[in-house]
Each structure stands twice: as structure tokens, then as C-alpha cells.
Amino acid sequence: MVLLYLGLGTLFGFVLSRSGAADYDFIQGMFLFTNFQLYGIIGSAVAITAPSLYLLKRYGKTLTGKPLVIELKPGHRGNVVGGILFGIGWSITGMCPGPILVNIGEGKVYALAALAGSLVGAGVFGVSYPRLQGIMRLPVLARGTGDG
């Protein structure tokens, strides 16, 4: 199975790299509304995934016959606040989490700094979870904000 995950990650990374999804200029073009590419990528990915997902859920099993389990993400104030913070970070770096790794792979040295910042940011979040729980209405610690 490890090889499957590695293979899917590689295909995902290659597509992100060659499509502009891991490219600083394409990301700024999306936010400036001067480049349609990223809207096309995300839109078509959702348009193809949604019906496939619907059919798979109706079938109700994985290809190996196990019952299909999709844990839904919880709703909380962090969706808005965290979303806004992430959007600022996506604009600053031109990278979302997957493309940070893709950019490092491509040889873009500065992406290492983006990864370091992301790990520190995620670390600070995890450590301060009990303090954020009340104000952000987050689920119990064992469940977390949603696994993405």
C-alpha cells in the first residue's frame, strides 16, 4: 500500500507542478482574476470528483469490499478564521500545502522556508488547541478540527 500512496502522491505532485497549481505567477493570476487556469483546475476537479464520489457512495464499498467510510469535517468558527489566515498565507507564498512540497521537489530553495513556517504554524496551533477551543468552538481534542 505504501507504494500506492507514494505513486498517487507522485502523480498528484507532477500534475500540480505542470499545471501551474504550484506556480507563484499562476496563483497571483488567479487572485488578480487575470488567469483562468486555477479556476479551471479546481472547478473541473470538483466537477469530475463529485459525481464519481456520489456513485462510489451508492456502491458503498471500497474495491477490496470493505465498507466505505467518509468522516465528515466538523463545522466551527475555525473554518472562517483559519480559512482567512490560510488565504493570506497562500497569497504571500503562492503555495498551498501540497505545492509547498512540489516546489521543494522542483528545486525552488525558498519553498524550504515556507515548509519550515508551515510546520511551526501547525505546531503552534496544536500546542494552543486547548486555549483556542472555547473561542473558536472547536470539537473535543480527540476529534480535532477536521483531517484534511
Binding site: V81, G83, I88, G89, C96, I100, V124
Partner: peptide
């Protein structure tokens, strides 16, 4: 890049996902 990364790491985890988990999978579901 480091400063932007702080926003990404903290923000995505507070939101419970990023472009793939929320934007692709969550929207499709």
C-alpha cells in the same frame, strides 16, 4: 516565505483542511 508559511500552517489546521481536503474533497462531497 517563512512568514507566509506560518499563516498556512496555523490557518489550515484551524480551518480543518486546505485546498485539497476542503476545496477538492469537501466541495465534491
Amino acid at each position: 516565505m517563512f512568514a507566509g508559511g506560518l499563516f498556512i500552517g496555523f490557518g489550515t489546521r484551524l480551518a480543518g483542511g486546505c485546498t485539497s481536503g476542503h476545496g477538492i474533497f469537501g466541495l465534491s462531497n
